[in-house]
Design a protein around this nucleic acid. Structure first.
Lengths: 194, 194
DNA sequence: CCTACCGATCGGTAGG
DNA sequence: CCTACCGATCGGTAGG
């Protein structure tokens, strides 16, 4: 079936592009690089995609959707802010580690999106961060946490996790749950022995 | 004096380049962009610098030196691992906030360095991280900390701080000391009230 | 999916 | 520091 092959090819283009964008950056990756990596001519790419930027858009917005979906289920659950934070981080890390290359592109190449995609992207990011901030504020109000600056703390928390795709190896000794466990334990309980 | 003007111009080129590299990325910034931003022709840049990459090298290695120097003094001091960590983070944040644009370039554009600079750069980074890891290990051995995985924790710690230049505004409400205080307090004592 | 090709732009040099 | 220019490469299109 032509349609199916086309879909597979498109998927393949996006996957290879993701790898190259991660390794070399979006701007430094040429369509000829990508094409030769796949084994076709550069011009042939345009039978499957509209433009170079469309590839970046697909990578970024697909992952944004994954992040949002992973939060959705948690927020309906009951439990203290510490539990909620723990679960939110686990979900976040699970999305992150499912496709580390795509995550790396997501976090460091989004600025090459043109308008209106760029604005949309930043709005989604703010919304997502806002949900984490709300968890910390709730924890503060219920007396579980002592956050001085919820936004600052969330940015520090997410940054420490989001850097992971840069070095995470899928076959490593740490599972997503281990990673999330380590990170949230440090953030919630701290390093100090008591 | 010709020499002095030349030095100033070179400094100006590096500063403007730093801004553009941060905003658009190294690969997406052309020498013509840079030149017109300064108010000269692209060809004239080459009276002051050898190549586009030389600018990146200067930015990256200058900052690497600053980071190393800032650690130097601390390691000689006495005090517990918690104190040492606190001080190391303050120094780190001070370097970071002294030139946020250069820091942002340092952390996200180094991969465009060619060999042998790339290898040198990564070795320096590993050494620097190694010193933080040693502080955590010392803290573990002296019973102050309970780090499960010192390397993992250091990467999380540094990542959470290093993301700052992306949003830090020099005139903001938080001073470098405040920032370092917030971060180390979270990492050492955790968010949980006790 | 290919060949052939487009206009634009790239980093950089020669020569003054 | 400029004008003039180089070869290479860019993203993308036409037409089959």
């Amino acid at each position: 079936m032509i349609t199916k092959n086309k879909l597979n090819r498109k998927q393949q283009i996006i996957e290879k592009a993701t790898q190259l964008f991660q390794k070399q950056g979006y701007a430094a990756t040429s369509m000829r690089d990508l094409a030769s990596f796949i084994g076709i001519e550069a011009a042939s790419l345009y039978s499957h995609i509209k433009s170079k930027e469309e590839i970046l858009q697909i990578i970024c917005f697909q992952l944004a959707e994954d992040f949002f979906n992973s939060l959705q289920s948690i927020e309906l659950e009951h439990g203290g802010a510490d539990e909620k934070l723990q679960k939110a981080v686990v979900s976040h890390v699970e999305v992150l580690t499912k496709d580390p290359a795509a995550s790396a592109v997501f976090f460091s190449e989004w600025r090459h999106l043109s308008e209106p995609y760029l604005t949309d992207f930043l709005e989604m990011r703010d919304q997502y961060e806002g949900r984490f901030i709300q968890i910390l504020i709730d924890g503060n109000e219920s007396g579980i946490f002592k956050t001085l600056d919820a936004k600052f703390t969330v940015l520090a928390l997410l940054s420490s996790i989001n850097w992971m795709p840069a070095w995470y190896k899928p076959g490593g000794k740490l599972s997503p749950k281990d990673i999330a466990g380590n990170v949230t334990d440090v953030f919630i309980n701290g390093l100090r022995v008591r």
